[in-house]
Amino acid sequence: CAGINFKPPTATQLAQWQQHQTRLNAIKTWRITGRIAIQTDSDNWTANTYWTQNKTDYELRFNTPTGQGALLLQGSPQQVTLKTSENETYTAQDPDTLIEEVTHLPLPVSNLYYWIRGLSYGDLVTNTYELDDAGRLSQLQQANWGIRYERYDSFNGYVLPTKLTLTNNQFTVKIVISQWQLQPAETTVKSL
């Protein structure tokens, strides 16, 4: 839907965005605690989510609202493994196809690596985004998803998204984050 026209950024917003982007790119290790809801017109899926990222290794855990394990995705550049609560294990090269094949839910995990921090995947392309008055992303159109950042909060000095919605022509993915635990690259990485 290229039809939407986004408010072009002012010079100050762009400068703020550059600074914000550099700081966020420095975050390579984090733990997110939150919830996710994926909706289609026929189905829906709600889960508690725990995302642990340690440079290029990650673990994405989805539990039922009452805390029972549903899905565990563990990935590294070499391989991705998905374990289900039916005691099945699947492996693949990339997380996106693996999740889609097993759950039929399109979770763009590779892009979420950037979007979840409030970053775009690669440089911003004119008229595909809008910045808020602090120079942070408020809307982004990328990889045929529309991403809307509805809330930011600060966690030890970093301002990070805590509510975002991703939509494409079939799905709506809502994510809320109750906690970010960070390990910016410049400090030593103690085991998470």
């Binding site: 919830r35 996710i36 809801a37 909706q39 829906n44 709600t46 609202p65 509510k163 809502k174 809320v176």
Partner: peptide
Amino acid sequence: WIYDADLDQIT
């Protein structure tokens, strides 16, 4: 019924 106010979702 599962109601999550922040997610604005009822399942």
